Computed example of a mutant assay.
Amino acid sequence: MPNLQLRHLVLAFAGLSLAAPASAAEASGAWQLGPEARVTPVRVSMMSPLPAAPRVFAITPERRALLNTIRYAEGTWANGQEVGYRILFGGSLFDSLDRHPNRVMRTARYASAAAGAYQFMPFTWDMVTRAMGIPDFGPESQDQAALFLVQRRGALHLADRGELSPDLAARLAPEWASFPTLAGRSFYGQPVKRLNDLRRFYEQNLAQLRNEAAAVWEDVAIRQAPPACNDASLSCQLERVGEPSTAR
């Protein structure tokens, strides 16, 4: 095989590794420490090619509810406060949102460099920033990156349906270890949230977001129109010229 073809083949196989994290260390989660820890193979499902991601994903109530549910599952919900975007693995905070902190934190059983509202691993964050041109680690950038990962898992159309189905959760499980597979377990053998708990949070959050959106539109709809122009000023005369004729 010519060297150029061989090089392309090697790059193609390397590219497949971006389809899903090769280990728990590359997911938005943690890896286990201790003498009993060992490397175990992880079966990674192939994903169909996706179109190039837009620079900006629209944030609908359905998508925001899913983002909030991911935060809830990852332990960064923080009652919806912006401080959740500054959380390191283990619960401590970092200061600057200029870039991913890339700092390994340790607990009794786990160590991880996951950070932010969606607990991005550095490897994952680098991949997303290259794909989208994200300039910083601020809240908007983290939201966009999370939606990119949802789309990358072929789940954005499911998110737009307005329900947290078992299929949607299972598609996100390889990306966020706290989401359950169809078998109800973590994709990486880590602590996992029950689907019923995630669905309850999602539905309550979505209902609140939809009510808020409806209130905004209602406020626009009930605003009074300006009074009809009925004096002899030049501006009123010009306005009447532009009105449709009522003559039959």
Rank of each mutant, 00 (worst) to 15 (best):
G29T: 00
V42H: 10
N68A: 14
L9M: 09
H8V: 06
V39I: 13
T40C: 10
A19W: 07
W31N: 05
E36P: 03
A19S: 11
T40W: 14
L66H: 04
A25S: 10
W31C: 08
F13P: 01
V39E: 10
L16W: 06
V56P: 03
T76E: 12
F57D: 01
R63L: 03
P49V: 03
R43K: 08
L11P: 00
V42N: 09
G34D: 02
P61C: 01
I70L: 15
A53Q: 00
A19K: 10
A27Y: 07
A52K: 04
N68M: 12
R38P: 00
L66E: 08
E36K: 10
R63H: 05
G75K: 15
E74D: 10
R71A: 15
E74M: 11
A20P: 03
L18G: 05
N68S: 13
P54D: 00
P35A: 01
Q32R: 15
G34S: 02
G15C: 09
I59C: 01
T69M: 14
L66N: 06
Y72M: 13
A12H: 09
N68L: 12
A25K: 14
L33D: 05
L6F: 03
V56S: 04
A52G: 03
F13T: 10
P2Y: 01
W77D: 11
P35M: 02
H8F: 02
W31K: 04
L6T: 01
V10T: 03
V39W: 11
P2C: 00
L33K: 08
P35R: 02
A65W: 08
L50K: 15
N68W: 13
W77C: 10
P35I: 01
L11A: 08
I59E: 00
L18P: 01
R43E: 08
G29F: 04
W77N: 12
A65P: 08
L33A: 07
L16K: 07
E36Q: 08
A52M: 01
S28N: 14
A73T: 11
A14R: 14
R71K: 15
P61A: 02
R7V: 02
G75F: 15
A25I: 12
A24K: 07
L18R: 03
S48H: 07
R63A: 04
L16Q: 08
P41D: 04
G15N: 09
L4V: 12
R55E: 07
L33H: 05
A37Q: 06
S17A: 12
R43I: 11
L18D: 05
Q5N: 04
